[in-house]
Amino acid sequence: MAAEKKTAIPKDIVALSFEQALAELEAIVARLEGGQVDLEESIGIYERGALLKAHCEAKLQAAQTKVDRIVVGADGGLKTESAEIG
């Protein structure tokens, strides 16, 4: 499976939200477990499942709290500055 991780994730999967990707992955696993899929198709969706999983993992890993506060300028314009919240 190491090879799959190196594969670039296609755009249509990158565009998916975590929830959409997870839901599709669940559907794929359910179909594979059902055993009713043609062999060729089962390999195709198996590989797509790997890409969906990689996409979900990326979404899970890129998680670090970053807090900025909105500052309204005198002219009404907005900017942000890093906020230290005790």
Partner: peptide
């Protein structure tokens, strides 16, 4: 996600 991955691998093998 891990559970799904395990099931995905297992399902194709089976």
């Amino acid at each position: 996600l891990l559970d799904l991955e395990r099931r995905r691998l297992g399902a194709l093998g089976r």
